[in-house]
């Protein structure tokens, strides 16, 4: 999956399911859009669906420090590369 496709999928998911809009790639999701830990866990489940694999506990804990969409896309690309 190309980076641009991942990015579009993630932004669409957040906007559709979390009712957030005008999400910038480097916006702090919590500070700017009210994204919280409940949303983060829900997004992790979506990432697993996207990757068709389950994330490890270490990956999940690392993901909880993510703040921006750009970081989310970086995270997914790395997790996919690790599994390639």
């Amino acid at each position: 999956m190309e980076r641009e496709e991942i990015q579009t999928t993630i932004i669409n998911f957040i906007e559709t399911n979390f009712e957030m809009s005008d999400i910038g790639l480097d916006d702090d999701l919590n500070a700017v859009h009210g994204f919280d830990s409940i949303d983060a866990i829900e997004l992790l489940r979506e990432i697993e669906t996207l990757m068709k694999t389950k994330l490890t506990r270490d990956e999940e804990e690392a993901a909880m420090t993510i703040r921006t969409v750009r970081q989310i896309v970086d995270f997914i690309e790395k997790a996919m590369a690790d599994r390639a």
Partner: peptide
């Protein structure tokens, strides 16, 4: 089991 959302408990 993994489909249970974080909010389900709340």
């Amino acid at each position: 089991m993994f489909s249970l959302s974080a909010a389900d408990y709340l």
